[in-house]
């Protein structure tokens, strides 16, 4: 079942139904119980089935990348003061930062393997993002781990990543499927 969010009859933002692959979570009195289940099972909340491109190798990589980004965003958005969570944020940021590079390299290797014609363009998108991540990480450390900068970074990263997968990576999947059909 495709994940989506819908307004309840109340029309209030506070009372929504989150319908996920395996769960019906009503944001009512049962909210704490259900949210607890989601975290204990480590569901990647930012991942959606619609991001699946139909090429197992790419989908597997994307799910891992989204898991890393999810850990980072969940930690960043968790309740508590910045002082209380900054160490954990920094740890997840480092894990995520390292994995972004690993993922991009793996995806580029896959593109070369299949002879993807959009490789150069795609690699430039990756290189630009890696440069941005590096720049922010350096500024973050230099400025003494300020929350505002890293919140801005996470918001941009999230939107960029989702768009990149559904728009740019989709082209790789379409190319792969097209080549398979020609065999």
């Amino acid at each position: 079942m495709q994940e989506y969010i819908k307004q309840t009859k109340t029309g209030s933002r506070k009372y929504k139904s989150f319908v996920r692959a395996d769960f019906l979570v009503e944001m009512t009195g049962r909210v704490c119980y259900h949210i607890d289940i989601i975290f204990k099972k480590e569901i990647v909340m930012i991942w959606k089935d619609k991001y699946r491109l139909g090429v197992a190798e790419i989908d597997k990589q994307h799910m891992e990348l989204f898991r890393r980004v999810n850990d980072f965003v969940v930690t960043l958005r968790s309740k508590g003061s910045w002082q209380e969570k900054v160490d954990k944020v920094n740890d997840t940021l480092q894990f995520m930062q390292e994995y972004v590079v690993i993922h991009f390299k793996a995806e580029e290797a896959y593109q070369l393997k299949i002879g993807y014609t959009g490789y150069e363009h795609h690699k430039k998108l990756h290189d630009d993002m890696v440069a941005y991540v590096t720049e922010v990480a350096e500024e973050y450390e230099r400025e003494g781990y300020k929350e505002e900068l890293i919140q801005r970074f996470a918001g941009k990263l999230l939107a960029w990543l989702i768009n990149h997968v559904v728009a740019e990576d989709l082209k790789i999947a379409q190319y792969t499927i097209h080549k398979e059909e020609q065999k």
Binding site: I5, M27, I46, R152, F153, L158, W160
Partner: peptide, 25 residues
């Protein structure tokens, strides 16, 4: 609502995270 769809968690206020995500869109 848009940012909630992206991150799959409830977002209550317009903060730097939300503004940055919308700016990127």
């Amino acid at each position: 609502d848009l940012v909630e769809i992206m991150c799959g968690m409830e977002i209550d206020e317009v903060d730097e995270f939300v503004k940055s995500a919308l700016g990127e869109i």
